[in-house]
Amino acid sequence: MRQVLLVVDVQSTFSPPEWLVDGLRVLSANIPTIASVELHDEQVTPFERQLGWHPAAQDDSLIEADQVFVKHGYGQSAEAIAYIRQLGVERVLVCGLQTDTCVLAAGFALFDAGLMPTLVTDMTVGSALDRSAKMGIALWQHHFGQVTTSAEVLADLAGERQG
């Protein structure tokens, strides 16, 4: 199956847990990977004015990726979505930080672009409202239906290599 991994906002600004970074590094070493990095530009997204906080103005993905896209706000950039569409993949594996906000927003953008977003449930962390990510996973299943785990992805990849 032609697929790509989209790593959402796993960057220093958001202090991802080590287990997430380590797990995503294993996945990204085995599959084409795209990452998004959320940077602050108050002229584009009014984080400071509306929420009283903002991400860093400069930051890098902690996960090696074939392509990294900068975004300003919750959703993925039009450039990232266009790039993924041009790859002609059958599904987009989505993982990263804030399952119930930025990861979910990526799912909506991918779905609206006619792509098949699939959440890697054990490679995501929820927002401060729900660090367990259970709420975000439930929302994902309700809206998009497609979920998997990193073990399933790696097993599928191993099977493809043997077959």
Rank of each mutant, 00 (worst) to 15 (best):
R2A: 14
R2Q: 03
Q3L: 05
V4R: 00
L5C: 05
L6P: 02
V8I: 08
V8R: 01
D9E: 06
D9Y: 01
V10H: 02
Q11D: 05
Q11F: 04
Q11C: 06
T13E: 04
T13R: 04
P16N: 08
P17M: 03
D22F: 08
G23R: 15
G23L: 10
V26E: 09
V26K: 12
S28T: 11
I31F: 12
I31W: 01
S36D: 06
E38V: 09
H40G: 08
D41N: 15
E42G: 11
V44A: 09
Q50M: 13
H54D: 05
D59T: 07
D59F: 07
D60I: 11
S61C: 13
S61F: 02
S61Y: 07
L62P: 01
A65W: 06
D66G: 13
G73Q: 11
Y74H: 12
A82D: 10
A82E: 02
G88P: 01
E90G: 14
R91I: 15
V92M: 06
L93W: 13
V94I: 11
G96F: 02
L97F: 15
L97A: 13
D100E: 12
C102G: 05
C102A: 12
L104D: 01
L104F: 05
A105P: 02
P117S: 08
T118Q: 14
T118E: 15
L119A: 01
V120C: 10
V120A: 15
T121C: 11
T121E: 14
T121H: 02
T124M: 04
T124L: 01
V125A: 04
V125R: 15
G126W: 00
S127E: 00
L129W: 08
S132E: 01
A133Y: 08
K134E: 10
K134I: 14
Q146D: 12
Q146M: 12
V153W: 10
L154G: 07
A155S: 13
A155N: 15
E160I: 08
